[in-house]
Design a protein around this nucleic acid. Structure first.
Lengths: 143, 143
DNA sequence: ATCTTATTGAAAATCGTTTTCAATAAGAAG
DNA sequence: CTTCTTATTGAAAACGATTTTCAATAAGAT
């Protein structure tokens, strides 16, 4: 079962109805190697389902995020992009040239957190790590 | 020389003029143990200088950020807060209850980055790490 | 086939932030 | 101290991303 169908059944299990505009949005996100902004998702979904409205995109993104199926990739300007959510202890690595975004394992962070907790007295409940760089393809183009 | 005076002379060295509203803003940021949103900074500065406008806050924050004197603390909702910038390889640790924000050393990350680079082929140029948790005072209150 | 209620798109509203503008004042130069 | 240049000011308007409101539609349970 591909990712779209997985998402569809999770949405249904949570009382959501599956409509054509919603399916278009799911496919756009699931098929993109890049993190997309809501506006991008709107434009791409419009190709598959021309009558779709931007509001529907926002509403669907909300639901997907609440169900933990997608996650925000934060940008310095305060806007954000969206990607299928990591399933484990993974974090995003974003190419600053083409936007291609992949995941890497962040297991190693546990020991840093323990150290910080004992040094600061804070109880750490959440963390946020994102890396930015140049992907292999863009590195080739730059030379 | 305290932090405000340091900032004042750096601003002057960069051709900025020092005005009363600007001084009020500098003091608010320098004296706060919490990361503040632009609106908070506006309200607090208004106490010291009632005629100040929100626009002046934004403009001053821009300059301080460009000179590297303050830095953004990102929030999940896309808004951001501001803090005096770390001087070394430090990152923010934000209390999710009271907002008290402190710095911790992030030196250990170098080896993770090297590992990720070799595993992914990306060349890492920048990173973002923020921790969230409960500060010692708020932990006491919770019990 | 019916019925409930989630979902839709359009328009308007809202939020944080930026731009425009004419008036003011910081600080360099005389 | 006076003059002059130009950075800075606050108010109002503009802006872009996101949210709310609303009446019409349609998914999917019965």
């Amino acid at each position: 079962m591909d990712r779209v169908e997985q998402w569809v059944s999770i949405l249904q299990d949570n009382g959501c109805r599956i409509t054509a505009p919603r399916r278009a949005i799911l496919r756009v996100i699931a098929e993109s190697p890049r993190a997309l902004q809501p506006g991008d998702i709107f434009e791409l979904s419009r190709v598959k389902h021309p009558s779709i409205g931007l509001v529907t995109v926002y509403r669907t993104l909300d639901q997907l995020e609440k169900l933990g199926l997608i996650q925000r990739v934060h940008r310095d300007d305060g806007c954000h992009m969206l990607m299928p959510a990591p399933t484990g202890h993974e974090h995003y690595l974003v190419c600053t040239h083409c936007g291609r975004t992949i995941l890497f394992e962040g297991d190693d962070l546990g020991s840093l957190f323990t150290k910080v907790e004992s040094q600061t007295g804070y109880l750490i409940s959440d963390h946020w790590l994102q890396l930015f760089g140049t992907c292999p393809d863009c590195r080739k183009l730059e030379q």
